[in-house]
C-alpha cells in the first residue's frame, strides 16, 4: 500500500547504553541523569501538547480560538444561552467548485463545564470529521447516499446533502443537558 500518513507524534527512541569499559564520573553521571529526566519531561510535555486528543477540537473538548484556526475559520461569534450553555458559531466565506461565494458555518455548543457536547455544520464539503469527532468516528463507514444516521454510545451523527453542500449534526448523547431542544440549539443562522 502506497499511501501512509506519518504519525504526528513519533515514539521516543530509547537512550543508548554506555559502551562497556567507559564509565563516566559520578558528577557526570548525575548531570547526565538530570539531563535525561529533563529530556523525558520535555518529551512528555510536548507529547501532551501535541497529542491528537489535546490538538483535537470539537466534541468533548473546550472551545478555543486555536480550534477555529485549525478548522480554517476566521470569524467566531459567541453567545451565552440558558443553562448556562455557550454557542460558538464559526463562519467564513469560501468559493465552491463552481466559483460561487458561499458562507460556511459550524456551530458548537458547550455545556456548563465548558466542553462541547453538540455541533452542526452547513458547508460546501463536510468539515474534518476526524478533528471534530475524534475517536468517536469509526474508521470505516458503510457507503451511504442520502442521509447518514449513526447511533453509537458516544456519538449520534446525522449528515447528508450533495457534493456541493454538506449539512450535518453530531452530539454526545451522554453529555446532553436535560431539557434542551437540540434542533433549536444547533440551528444555523
Amino acid at each position: 500500500m502506497k499511501t501512509v500518513i506519518p504519525s504526528a507524534l513519533e515514539k521516543p527512541q530509547g537512550h543508548r547504553p554506555f559502551p562497556p569499559g567507559r564509565r563516566p564520573s559520578l558528577l557526570a553521571r548525575h548531570l547526565l541523569r538530570s539531563l535525561v529526566w529533563t529530556g523525558w519531561a520535555l518529551i512528555l510535555l510536548l507529547g501532551l501538547l501535541g497529542s491528537p486528543e489535546s490538538a483535537r477540537a470539537g466534541l468533548g473538548t473546550a472551545f478555543s480560538a486555536q480550534e477555529a484556526v485549525h478548522l480554517g475559520y476566521s470569524r467566531v461569534v459567541t453567545a451565552t444561552l440558558p443553562g448556562p450553555l455557550t454557542a460558538y458559531t464559526l463562519s467564513r466565506t469560501a468559493t465552491n467548485p463552481l466559483g460561487h461565494a458561499v458562507t460556511e458555518r459550524i456551530r458548537e455548543v458547550a455545556g456548563p463545564d465548558g466542553r462541547i457536547f453538540a455541533l452542526s455544520w452547513s458547508t460546501i464539503h463536510h468539515p474534518d470529521l476526524n478533528l471534530l469527532l475524534g475517536k468517536r468516528l469509526p474508521s470505516s463507514l458503510p457507503f451511504i447516499r442520502g442521509e447518514r444516521t449513526l447511533s453509537l454510545p458516544t456519538l449520534e451523527l446525522r449528515m447528508g446533502g450533495s457534493v456541493l453542500h454538506s449539512e450535518g449534526m453530531a452530539w454526545d448523547p451522554r453529555r446532553l443537558p436535560p431539557g434542551i431542544n437540540l434542533q433549536e440549539l444547533l440551528t444555523l443562522p
Binding site: 500518513i5 463552481l98 476526524n130 470505516s140 463507514l141 457507503f143 451511504i144 450533495s162 457534493v163
Partner: peptide
C-alpha cells in the same frame, strides 16, 4: 490510509461495484 480530512467508506456495500455520476452539479 487517507488524509485526515477524508472519511472514506467502501462503495462495494450491498453489491454495488462503483458509481457513475452523470448529473449534478
Amino acid at each position: 490510509s487517507s488524509p485526515s480530512s477524508c472519511s472514506p467508506s467502501t462503495i462495494t456495500t450491498a453489491g454495488v461495484n462503483g458509481i457513475l455520476g452523470v448529473g449534478y452539479p
